[in-house]
Amino acid sequence: MAAAAAAGAGPEMVRGQVFDVGPRYTNLSYIGEGAYGMVCSAYDNVNKVRVAIKKISPFEHQTYCQRTLREIKILLRFRHENIIGINDIIRAPTIEQMKDVYIVQDLMETDLYKLLKTQHLSNDHICYFLYQILRGLKYIHSANVLHRDLKPSNLLLNTTCDLKICDFGLARVADPDHDHTGFLTEYVATRWYRAPEIMLNSKGYTKSIDIWSVGCILAEMLSNRPIFPGKHYLDQLNHILGILGSPSQEDLNCIINLKARNYLLSLPHKNKVPWNRLFPNADSKALDLLDKMLTFNPHKRIEVEQALAHPYLEQYYDPSDEPIAEAPFKFDMELDDLPKEKLKELIFEETARFQPGYRS
């Protein structure tokens, strides 16, 4: 834990890192770190609560700039109880001085990944967590956004079992017609939660990839272990087919990539493993919904509104309290091709509203 900075004593240090967030945020305490930044909790002297502050230093890398800009653009436009918001952003007053960006968010005690390492969940908890994931996802999908990296560590939890989806750095506007060349190379989302079509096709992607990830998360809540822990690309596919069985001819016809289709045709026939054999203690309604989410063919996979209306979630289902976005989200430009200098300018502009004396 960093010592509390005395008023006016300059930035606090946390594990050798400068955290320049005073005077409003003090009493910093280390939480963890990701690929390009550290997260601390801090005391907000204005709202009198502890908050989470993520320090991001992305400006050396085009990919990190892209992810940072995506996350900020999306989260500043989203407003939903099951999606983490941005409360404040701290950065230098000029673009030349801006080396880091500090993002202030609600402090959540833990995440689903940490929880599943230590606790076996009751059916009631599984049901409530799944409902909140789908409630947040309904809003995301209504904005025409794909999260693309749903996994237990991106689901934040607090002691009252509130759940918030975080990390929109890989999110995209849904565009089933656009052929994202190089899709697989830039697709760094965790393999275990990846839909089979991501490994088999490169053309376009749809909201059904997020539903697949939610199915993987439900299976993990039922058993405290990942359902498809593939060691590499082909191993991942083999794990999936080992449980779902061989795809039907109709399902194979959806695979545009001939090499991928021929690979699947070359494999020995596998039978589907019954879900109640894998999860003998699970609620039968939970397994019915799991089956509809972990469907090989993305066109037959359940959609988020149908999933919310499934009998497993009937005690929570309330369409009048499951809000959607006001308007579909649009990125003005494809960020993939922009140089990091341009992305830095866009991050600077996007964060201006939090600067003292800002006038829109």
Rank of each mutant, 00 (worst) to 15 (best):
T185E: 02
L156A: 02
A2G: 04
F228R: 05
L112C: 11
N297V: 08
F296S: 01
F331I: 00
K340Q: 07
I84E: 05
P298S: 07
D177V: 01
V188R: 01
I95C: 13
N158K: 00
A92K: 15
D88F: 15
G204A: 08
K48R: 04
V145N: 09
L244Y: 07
L28Y: 10
K342H: 14
D106Q: 14
G32H: 05
T160K: 03
G136A: 14
N297H: 04
L157P: 03
G32T: 10
N123Q: 08
R50E: 06
L146P: 05
C216K: 02
F228W: 12
L115D: 09
H125G: 02
Y128A: 12
L264V: 13
G16L: 07
K330T: 12
Q236H: 02
L200T: 09
I53D: 07
F228E: 07
H310A: 12
Y25Q: 05
P176I: 06
D288G: 07
F329A: 13
Y233H: 00
A3I: 15
S122M: 10
D124R: 09
H239Y: 05
A219C: 07
A52K: 02
S57Q: 14
M221V: 07
M108F: 14
A9L: 12
K300D: 09
T26W: 08
I84S: 14
R148F: 02
L107H: 11
I198S: 05
L265R: 12
Q306P: 13
S248V: 09
D149G: 03
N262K: 00
R194M: 02
F348A: 12
H269A: 14
P229E: 04
F296N: 04
N87M: 12
D124S: 09
K259W: 06
I209E: 01
E60H: 15
D210F: 06
A143K: 12
T94I: 08
R172F: 07
P247Q: 05
L163A: 11
L241C: 11
C254S: 00
P152L: 03
K207G: 05
W212P: 01
Q97V: 12
T181F: 09
L134Y: 06
E305R: 10
Y312V: 09
F183R: 08
I324D: 13
T181A: 05
L258W: 11
V214M: 02
Q315S: 12
P11T: 01
N154S: 01
E303R: 11
T159C: 04
T190C: 07
T159A: 06
L200V: 01
K54D: 04
R15L: 05
I31T: 15
L338R: 14
A92W: 15
T110W: 07
E341Q: 13
E81V: 04
L155V: 14
V273D: 14
D283Q: 14
E33I: 15
T26C: 06
A286L: 08
L155S: 08
Y139Q: 06
A219M: 01
S208L: 04
K73M: 02
W212N: 02
L265E: 09
L28D: 14
G10A: 08
C127E: 07
E60N: 14
S266V: 13
L155R: 07
E345R: 13
T110A: 04
S320P: 11
L28W: 05
Y263L: 02
S122P: 11
K285P: 09
Q97E: 09
Y43S: 09
V21I: 03
E334C: 15
Y193R: 01
P328M: 08
P152D: 04
K138S: 11
G32Y: 04
E197F: 02
K340F: 07
D20M: 11
T190R: 01
Y36W: 12
S320W: 12
K203P: 02
A2V: 15
W275G: 03
L237S: 03
T185I: 03
T63F: 06
